[in-house]
Simulated assay, not measured.
Amino acid sequence: MMKPVIAIVGCGRMGLVRAQALKCVSHRVRYVFDVDSSRASQVADVHNSRAVASLAEMNWSELDAVFVCTPPSDRAAMEIATRLDKHVFVEKPIHLSARHSLSLLGMTLPRDRIFAVGYMNRYRSPIEEVRKRIEDIPILGFQAHWICKPYMVPWWADPAQSGGPLNEQATHIVDLIRYLLGEVDQVTAIQGVSDSSTVSVMLRMQSGCIGTFVYSCSATEKDIGLRLFTQDTPIVLSGWDFYLSDAPWQTSTIQRQSSEDAFLSETKSFLDAVESGDAQAVRSPFTDAFKTQVVVDCIRNSLRLGTRVTVEAYREELDAL
């Protein structure tokens, strides 16, 4: 098929990242929209695209696919595109909660359109290597952490717009745990006594594997990592790019991998899937990202209720809605 006709909705940092990735693969954007016209113009300039003042100004019949890079509370473009049977790429998380996205789940299930969600860590080569290797390695448990400073954009700290830091940012580590270790059975979360933005979560996986992760946005520096315990050497993934610094299959010291652009790989995979019609290129489809959203919701429920929450019980509540 001809190259799909693309629009970008939302021109903050991630809108610019997607525009630059599309430029790298020589893919032009037809329309750009943001509530801030100056930001829309900045992204439009990358592609010599048309910056529009509203979603209604876009000729939707021309479009094949839409990149939705808006805050979690603003998913209007995602809903319009899905209703009009367009291919969709939406930045994580899918919404403020699983309840907010139930109608979208119902619309995506019966369709053959590509619907990808931006969990870029699934496209990192160390993550893929570990995922393949641990198929034959018993995992005894895991420890993860995502420590950082606040994301300095106005909507991020407002739960009504972002769903809160756990929803908007800690979702990365929840998704990565699911991607590597399978589905979560139960969660128990506690907050720091003097710092409510620091949270510790214990998870029991359906496989029986157990582990913890600590999230905080109260730091001044970034510290991210995931350690999987085995009967031998642990598997250690470190830093923003999750480079593989230790593993039982290594016979010598692991050299740090060269940097890679996970956002570029993710964007290209979405375009490849749209052009070929083969959804296998997408590692985080909407239906799978919905499961990550459910776990994040359960963590927030555990904090609110002060008790352990079973994921299946919460999912049954959603199915009853």
Rank of each mutant, 00 (worst) to 15 (best):
C298Q: 08
S245F: 11
R300A: 00
I190M: 09
R227A: 07
R131G: 10
L244N: 11
Q143L: 11
Q257P: 05
Q293P: 04
V29W: 08
D85W: 00
V17D: 01
R304V: 10
S252V: 10
R133M: 15
T70R: 03
Q250H: 11
S218M: 08
E129D: 12
R300K: 10
P72W: 00
G164R: 13
Q169N: 09
G106M: 03
M1Q: 11
A98V: 07
V17R: 11
G208S: 08
D45K: 15
M78E: 13
V43Q: 01
V201F: 05
S194G: 13
T251E: 12
W146N: 12
R227G: 00
V130L: 05
D288L: 13
S265I: 05
T171F: 01
E183N: 14
T287L: 08
T253C: 08
E316P: 04
F33G: 10
M1T: 10
V309G: 00
S197Q: 14
G118R: 03
Q257V: 04
A51H: 09
Q191G: 05
E128S: 14
I6R: 12
S196Q: 05
P138N: 06
A247L: 05
S284G: 02
N48I: 09
D319N: 13
V52E: 07
A160Y: 01
R124P: 02
C217D: 09
E57N: 13
Y179T: 10
H145A: 03
E62D: 14
L180P: 10
L104C: 02
F263W: 10
L140H: 08
